[in-house]
Simulated scan of single mutants.
Amino acid sequence: MAAHVVYKGPSVVKEILIGISLGLVAGGFWKMHHWNNQRRTKEFYDLLEKGEISVVREDE
Rank of each mutant, 00 (worst) to 15 (best):
K31R: 08
S21L: 15
L22F: 15
F44V: 02
Q38R: 15
K50A: 13
A3Q: 15
N37H: 04
V56E: 06
V5P: 04
L22C: 11
W35K: 11
L47I: 00
E58V: 06
G27I: 09
V12S: 00
E15I: 12
L24C: 15
E58Q: 06
L17E: 12
I18W: 14
A26R: 09
K8T: 03
P10L: 06
T41S: 15
D46M: 01
N37W: 10
V6R: 11
L17A: 00
V13H: 10
N36Q: 10
V5H: 14
G27L: 03
E60A: 07
L24D: 13
S11P: 00
W35S: 07
G28Q: 06
E60F: 10
V55P: 08
R57I: 04
Y45C: 11
G28L: 02
H34G: 12
L17P: 01
V25L: 14
W30S: 09
A2P: 13
V55S: 09
I16F: 03
K50I: 04
R57E: 00
E43F: 04
R57V: 01
E49L: 08
E49R: 02
V13F: 08
M1C: 05
R39H: 14
S21E: 14
V5S: 07
P10Q: 04
K31M: 10
I16R: 00
E58Y: 11
Q38G: 14
W30C: 04
D46S: 13
V12Y: 08
Y7E: 06
L22A: 14
V56I: 10
F44C: 09
K31P: 05
E52C: 01
E52N: 00
V12N: 01
E58P: 00
V55R: 07
A26H: 04
G27Q: 02
V55A: 07
M1S: 10
K50W: 05
T41M: 13
K14E: 13
G51F: 05
D46T: 14
G23W: 04
I16S: 02
I18E: 06
Y7R: 00
E60D: 05
A26F: 07
R40F: 03
T41I: 08
K31C: 07
G9Y: 09
K14P: 02
F44K: 10
F44T: 05
G51M: 06
E43I: 06
E49D: 06
L22Q: 12
H4R: 07
Y7W: 03
F44S: 02
V25F: 02
K42L: 13
K8V: 07
L48H: 04
R39N: 13
H4C: 12
D59L: 01
K8L: 08
G27P: 03
S54N: 05
E58W: 01
E52H: 02
F29A: 05
E15L: 12
H4P: 07
T41R: 08
D46F: 05
H34E: 13
K14W: 09
K50F: 08
H34N: 11
G19T: 03
D59A: 06
G9P: 14
E49H: 04
A3R: 11
H33G: 02
I18R: 10
V13D: 06
E15Q: 15
Q38F: 15
V13E: 11
I18K: 14
E52A: 05
L48T: 07
K42P: 01
L22I: 08
G9F: 10
L48V: 01
R39C: 15
G51T: 07
I53N: 01
